[in-house]
Design a binder for these strands. Structure first.
Length: 584
RNA sequence: GGCCCCGUGGUGUAGUUGGUUAACACACCCGCCUGUCACGUGGGAGAUCGCGGGUUCGAGUCCCGUCGGGGCCGCCA
């Protein structure tokens, strides 16, 4: 006989039915003469009752938590006073006629049963490394299984939508030559060609562009990407992108289809209706108002220019910054902050490059604290400050001042418990094409070197490179960058010119991606696309604190997998085959 | 490379100005219990306090080093 039902689907309609269930023992309650077993599979729990007269009793007696068992029995309604409203199957139970232990189980190092009963789950507080070492047990927990399922549903919704829109899914290689996204590559030594290496892709960037040249027109892929950089709560060495690319498309086309895709995914998986189109905000405005290129627009608390307050003030530290071409920006915290709180905020500002955080409290009858003596109450009032507020200032280079205050802004929101609800999608657009690298003393790309400049700014490319806008955009959700893309350069001459501006010698460009430059000569269509950070997307959708929670088998912060022990040594024979020697 | 936080039975924690048998809860094992659902109840086992060194009559506690875990900066879309 085969399994007839999943545990979690049983209800009053099955009353009287003979069922065969297979699953794990979530919990066993032994009353001496009577044994209750909560049987669990991926759908949930059902209570199995074993009567002492039942032939199943002996087996029920030896069963323990996490044993794998098969139960045959009859569904019956529970007595009215025995209904468990906490359980989806709480109105029924299965009277066991036969129980077979399919496998015994060692007691798990942490409990996996609580979440299935809707109880507070102690496993949420267990050291994460232990959860990773026993990930197959961790994944038995309900929230983990739910996130696996969400991941599946989101990917299915993406496939459904893009298929309908005429996209073709194409797989690009894992063993390849690296495409320059700027990160460190994971390398794979070649056995057949001593001293040569494959690289794992940081993204399928050049392959998808060549697919456009091939005439695929609309491509997508749920693509695994690899970057050998330090890890964070939102960064793993191998992670997943939704990668997509379209030919003959401009920025608006790409934004529009992505908005509808996001809306489709949210509708199908969370049942949430998003308002389209998403707002668009220029990079410069995002920085000026929110101090971030990925602003959290779920709350106000905007940054304001404050240069004029200090232009002629006696506060020399600020005045000299202004005279040196810097800026002063201010933030009005709607509360009287304590010294300790301000010190904490200053630490935040400093971590992000600010020299310090100047502050003043605004009272009904004047200013107090911090730099009060350098400021005029009337002028500050005219500037916008209101009684009861603590005003915070940073003076520095434009982007440093804004980024520091942007972080202070987020810290204040945490501090004051400012509500941050909802799903705020936002396109940040008009990124600068280039960014000055003061270490290397040259212009470097902000996105990647195949990003197309804004056509209107082309004349500036040689005269004033810093002012050239890119046709590049980020998709931001609640203050997290969840996607980024651009219109690509499709003409060889412009690509060559970009390399010149970037100071990449022709020979080097030829050596690194000559194959791609050659491809551009064969009738490359105008094209562009985007890549979503799928793991971040899922983490936000499920309210997870790190992307590790939505990745089945992630690495820990040291890049190790506590489950398999990777990375691990290899045998001398393997090294010899690869022509490798390990330096001590 | 840098800054911050954390390592005590299987798990989560407590452990006072350094002091004698390292405590509690849950889990685990055994007994009792026929309507439990955080079952109850009685008993039991289980920790060289991450590791190494130092100070001290005495270190879980103080100091130094080291290893491991987490968050962040740098780096990285």
């Amino acid at each position: 006989m085969k399994r007839t039902h999943y545990c979690g689907e049983l209800n009053e309609r099955h009353e009287g039915e003979r069922v065969l269930l297979q699953g794990w023992v979530n919990r066993r309650r032994d009353l001496g003469g009577l044994v209750f077993i909560d049987l669990r599979d991926r759908t949930g729990l059902v209570q199995v009752v074993v009567d002492p007269n039942s032939p199943a009793f002996a087996e029920a007696d030896r069963v323990r938590g996490e044993y794998v068992v098969e139960v045959e029995g009859t569904v019956r309604a529970r007595p009215a006073d025995q209904v468990n409203p906490e359980l989806a199957t709480g109105r029924v139970e299965v009277a066991a006629a036969r129980i077979a232990v399919l496998n015994e189980a060692t007691t798990p190092p942490f409990p996996v049963d609580a979440s299935w009963r809707g109880e507070d789950d102690p496993a949420e507080r267990v050291n994460e490394d232990l959860r990773l070492k026993y990930r197959y047990l961790d994944l038995r927990r309900k929230p983990m299984l739910e996130r696996l399922r969400l991941r599946h549903e989101v990917i299915k919704a993406i496939w459904d939508f893009l298929h309908e829109e005429g996209f073709i899914q194409v797989e690009t290689p894992f063993l390849t030559r690296s495409t320059p996204e700027g990160a460190r590559d994971f390398l794979v030594p070649s056995r057949l060609e001593p001293g040569k290496f494959y690289a794992l892709p940081q993204s399928p960037q050049l392959f998808k562009q060549m697919l456009m040249i091939a005439g695929v027109d609309r491509y997508f892929q749920i693509a695994r990407c690899f970057r050998d950089e330090d890890l964070r709560a939102d960064r793993q060495p191998d992670f997943t992108q939704l990668d997509l690319e379209m030919s003959f498309a401009n920025q608006e086309d790409i934004w529009e289809i992505n908005e509808r895709l996001v809306a489709h995914v949210f509708r199908e998986t969370l049942g949430v209706e998003l308002t389209l189109p998403f707002p668009r905000m220029a990079y410069r405005e995002a920085l000026e108002r929110y101090g971030s290129d990925k602003p959290d627009t779920r709350f106000g608390l905007e940054i304001e220019p404050a240069d004029e307050l200090f232009a002629e003030s006696g506060f020399n530290a600020f005045r000299s910054v202004l005279e040196g071409g810097g800026v002063v920006r201010g933030l009005r915290a709607p509360a009287e902050l304590s010294r300790k709180q301000i010190a904490g905020l200053e630490e935040v500002a400093k971590r992000y490059g600010a020299k310090g955080l100047a502050w003043v409290k605004v009272g009904e009858d004047g200013l107090s604290g911090g730099i009060a003596k350098f400021l005029d109450a009337g002028a500050l009032r005219a500037w916008g400050a209101r009684p009861g507020e603590t005003v915070l200032f940073v003076a520095d280079r434009w982007n440093t001042a804004l980024e520091a205050l942007g972080q202070v802004r987020l810290a204040i929101a945490d501090l004051l418990g400012i509500a941050r609800d909802g799903w705020n999608f936002l396109w940040v657009v008009d990124f600068p094409l280039l960014e000055w690298d003061s270490d290397l003393e040259l212009w470097t790309y902000m996105h990647h070197p195949f990003t197309s400049p804004h056509p209107e700014d082309l004349p500036l490319l040689e005269s004033d490179p810093g002012r050239v806008r890119a046709q590049a955009y980020d998709l931001v959700l609640n203050g997290t960058e969840v996607g980024g893309g651009s219109i690509r350069i499709h003409r060889m001459e412009l690509q060559q010119k970009m390399f010149d501006v970037l100071g990449i010698p022709r020979e080097e460009a030829e050596e690194k991606f000559g194959f791609f430059l050659e491809a551009l000569r064969y009738g490359a269509p105008p094209h562009g696309g985007i890549a979503w950070g799928l793991d971040r997307f899922l983490a936000l959708m499920s309210g997870a604190a790190s992307i590790r929670e939505v990745i089945p088998f992630p690495k820990n912060q040291s890049g190790r997998d506590p489950l398999t022990g990777a990375p691990a040594p290899v045998s001398p024979e393997q090294l010899a085959e690869l022509h490798l020697k390990i330096e001590e």
